[in-house]
C-alpha cells in the first residue's frame, strides 16, 4: 500500500512531512514536488505541512493512497493567502 503526495507552492514556501509513530520523518517534500512511500497497515502516521511567505501565495497538497483505503480518503488541500503568513496543518491517520 503506497501513499503518493504532490505539492505545489506559488510565491511561497511549503514543506510537507509524513512522520511515523516512532517520530521518524519518512517523507519530506519542499515547495513544488512529489514523493511516495509504502504504508504499513495498522500503523499510525502523522501527515503535517507548513507554509510561509512574505507575500500572498497559493498552495496545493494532493495525497492519495493506492489502492483506495478508507483510512485515508484522497486529500486535496488548496489554500490562498492574501498577505504575508506562516501556517501549518496536519492530522493523524491509519490505513
Amino acid at each position: 500500500m503506497n501513499i503518493i503526495i504532490n505539492t505545489q507552492a506559488k510565491n511561497g514556501h511549503l514543506i510537507c512531512y509524513l512522520i511515523s509513530s516512532e517520530n521518524i520523518t519518512i517523507l519530506s517534500i519542499k515547495d513544488s514536488g512529489s514523493d511516495n512511500c509504502k504504508l504499513i497497515p495498522g500503523s499510525t502516521y502523522r501527515f503535517e505541512w507548513h507554509v510561509w511567505s512574505d507575500m500572498k501565495a497559493d498552495y496545493k497538497i494532493n495525497a492519495v493512497v493506492s489502492p483506495i483505503n478508507q483510512g485515508f480518503p484522497d486529500l486535496n488541500w488548496v489554500k490562498s493567502y492574501g498577505d504575508s503568513h506562516q501556517d501549518m496543518g496536519g492530522f493523524y491517520f491509519s490505513v
Binding site: H13, Y17, I19, E48, H50, W52, M88, G90, F91
Partner: peptide, 19 residues
C-alpha cells in the same frame, strides 16, 4: 533557506484537540 518547522508531538496533539 534553512527551515525545519516540524512541531513536537505534544504541540501537534494540542493542535488536534483545538481542531
Amino acid at each position: 533557506i534553512f527551515w525545519n518547522p516540524a512541531v513536537t508531538k505534544n504541540d501537534f496533539d494540542n493542535f488536534q484537540q483545538a481542531k
